[in-house]
Structure formats: C-alpha cells, structure tokens
Simulated assay, not measured.
Amino acid sequence: MSTTEENRPEGLRARKRRRTENAIESSAVHLALELGVEHVTVDAICERADISRSTFFNYFPSRDDAIVGRAIEIPDGEAAFSVLDCTPEDLPLGLFRLLFAAIGHRNVNADLARDRMRLVSEQYEAGRLMMISILESGHQLGTVATAWLRARPEHAKLDSPERESALALALVHGAMTAKMTEWTAASGDVSAEESDFLRIVDDFRVLLG
C-alpha cells in the first residue's frame, strides 16, 4: 500500500456514511448505558439516531452489532492475498492492513470507543457480545493468514502455518489493544496510523529483549 493510497482524502459519500454509522452506534451505546443492553431495541436506537428501520438494517444486521460493533467481514482469496503480498516478510503488518482494508477506512471515533469501553466494564453482557464479535473477526483473519502461508510457503518463518498465523494475529490484537488506550484518551475521530502500529511492535521487541 503506497503512502498516497494510505492518505487519500475520504470522499463525501464515505464521510456521510461514516457519520450515519457513528450516529447509530453512539445512540445504541448510550441507550445501553442508560437502560442496560437487554432493554435496548432497534426501534429505540432508530428514534435516538433519527433514522428509519430500513436505514438501520442497511448498516447493521442486528441490535447487538450496533451496540458492541459488528464482526468485520475479512476478504478472502486473491483479494486478501494481494494485501498480504505487499508485506510478504511482515505478516502482522499485512494483517493490520487487511483489517483496515476490510473496514474501508482508518478512522476511529474516540468518543464512541471510550463509551464502549465503559459499557463493557459495567455490563457483563456487553463484554460477552463484544468478545464474540472480536473472536469472529479474528477467526476470519487467522483463516486467511493460514491460507496465504500455505500458498506462499517461501514467506513462512515457522514450520506450522496455523501457529504462525495465530502468533501474528495475537501481535496485531495486542497492538490494537495498546493503541485503544491512546484512542480513548482523545476526542472525535482519530486515525489508526501504520506508524503507530510499527511503534508498538517495536515496543514488543524491546520487552522480548
């Protein structure tokens, strides 16, 4: 991925879509904080966000996905391989790029992230739902990484593609968790920069000696 591609300005349609998505998620999270996850309905989210039910389901398949974040649909096959092929000697970086390629942008709403973290800390059910979403996305990434290593054995660093994929994915997850602490201390939209990911990976190396 070139620097030009990374920093290309977001189009008007994409910005409008992201604003609507943020409004839906923010409404869902705030309702969950006020009422409890189990008492939130799609109709209540729509009323709070001032949207129709059809608009809601254009963005989210379910109420739970709006509250804790939906699992990310990771591309597979050649679409995924083309991303991983750009960093053949650095699978964790490739997975980081693939994750945000699937999302479609690198913007993180810090206020929403902070509210979600509060929700998860206060309500067990929210944490359970979020973990399911994270595990589903992680399973997709791991499956793609394993398939890529089998198709590109010359780039494998370990004897087991499954083990190498799992370790690379753990590193990405750890870096994202570390970065979340910084994001939740900000406000508004922040960007998931590749340079931040690489900095955190370097910190891992320092810890490992």
Rank of each mutant, 00 (worst) to 15 (best):
residue 100 F to E: 01
residue 112 L to Y: 12
residue 136 E to T: 03
residue 34 E to N: 14
residue 178 A to S: 12
residue 71 A to E: 09
residue 60 F to G: 07
residue 72 I to Q: 05
residue 168 A to S: 15
residue 98 L to N: 13
residue 66 A to Q: 10
residue 109 N to P: 04
residue 200 I to G: 01
residue 99 L to P: 14
residue 34 E to C: 06
residue 152 R to M: 02
residue 10 E to K: 06
residue 207 L to K: 00
residue 39 H to A: 13
residue 82 S to Y: 06
residue 99 L to G: 10
residue 166 A to V: 05
residue 64 D to S: 12
residue 148 W to M: 03
residue 104 G to R: 02
residue 38 E to K: 02
residue 104 G to Q: 04
residue 160 S to P: 03
residue 199 R to H: 09
residue 78 E to N: 08
residue 5 E to I: 01
residue 52 S to V: 04
residue 21 E to Q: 11
residue 110 A to I: 08
residue 12 L to P: 00
residue 189 D to A: 05
residue 139 H to G: 04
residue 147 A to W: 09
residue 5 E to S: 04
residue 38 E to M: 03
residue 144 V to L: 13
residue 113 A to W: 00
residue 85 D to H: 07
residue 127 G to V: 02
residue 67 I to K: 10
residue 34 E to G: 03
residue 116 R to T: 05
residue 131 M to A: 07
residue 99 L to A: 12
residue 11 G to F: 00
residue 119 L to F: 08
residue 61 P to I: 08
residue 163 R to T: 14
residue 68 V to K: 08
residue 119 L to A: 10
residue 108 V to W: 10
residue 3 T to E: 12
residue 159 D to S: 09
residue 175 A to D: 00
residue 188 G to D: 04
residue 94 G to C: 13
residue 143 T to F: 01
residue 164 E to P: 05
residue 16 K to E: 15
residue 59 Y to C: 07
residue 179 K to Y: 12
residue 10 E to W: 07
residue 180 M to S: 15
residue 48 R to N: 07
residue 193 E to W: 15
residue 20 T to N: 15
residue 136 E to N: 07
residue 117 M to K: 12
residue 5 E to L: 05
residue 28 A to V: 11
residue 36 G to Q: 03
residue 25 E to L: 01
residue 34 E to M: 01
residue 3 T to K: 05
residue 54 S to I: 02
residue 205 R to E: 06
residue 138 G to E: 01
residue 182 E to I: 13
residue 37 V to L: 06
residue 92 P to R: 05
residue 49 A to S: 08
residue 7 N to C: 07
residue 84 L to N: 11
residue 3 T to M: 05
residue 99 L to F: 14
residue 127 G to F: 01
residue 64 D to M: 10
residue 103 I to P: 10
residue 33 L to T: 06
residue 60 F to L: 06
residue 157 K to A: 10
residue 15 R to I: 12
residue 84 L to S: 12
residue 126 A to Q: 01
residue 73 E to A: 14
residue 203 D to A: 13
residue 21 E to W: 01
residue 32 A to Q: 07
residue 146 T to P: 06
residue 32 A to F: 07
residue 10 E to H: 03
residue 141 L to Q: 04
residue 66 A to R: 07
residue 162 E to Q: 11
residue 16 K to I: 15
residue 6 E to W: 04
residue 50 D to R: 09
residue 60 F to R: 02
residue 152 R to I: 01
residue 2 S to V: 09
residue 105 H to N: 12
residue 99 L to C: 09
residue 208 L to F: 09
residue 140 Q to N: 06
residue 79 A to W: 11
residue 12 L to D: 14
residue 132 I to F: 15
residue 176 M to T: 14
residue 93 L to M: 14
residue 173 H to V: 13
residue 207 L to N: 08
residue 90 D to L: 04
residue 33 L to R: 12
residue 25 E to H: 05
residue 74 I to Y: 06
residue 206 V to I: 09
residue 192 A to G: 09
residue 136 E to H: 04
